[in-house]
Amino acid sequence: MKAKIIITPKKAVLDPQGKTVQNALEHMGYQGIGAVHVGKYLEVELSGNDRESARKQLDEACHKFLSNPVIEDYRLELE
């Protein structure tokens, strides 16, 4: 089992990295570029098959440690 975690800056928090990448893409001539957000992507390999317990544990870890809820949102997917 594998968990995929995507951490992004909260919409209300300024994301200068995303803005800079967006500007660069526009300057390079790419068309139709909208807002860019730079975040983090984590893959966690899991032993065992209990999806519910894995989700519960990782949800806690995301909230407590892997993301900072003051400035970041996260999305957790299990596959």
């Binding site: 800056p9 928090v13 300024l14 200068p16 990295q17 800079t20 900072n68 003051v70 400035i71």
Partner: peptide, 15 residues
């Protein structure tokens, strides 16, 4: 990060 001070640090606007 420990929650002993309020708030969080984010990147400077100008980088």
């Amino acid at each position: 990060e420990a929650g002993l001070l309020p708030g969080a640090l984010i990147r400077n606007r100008s980088l």
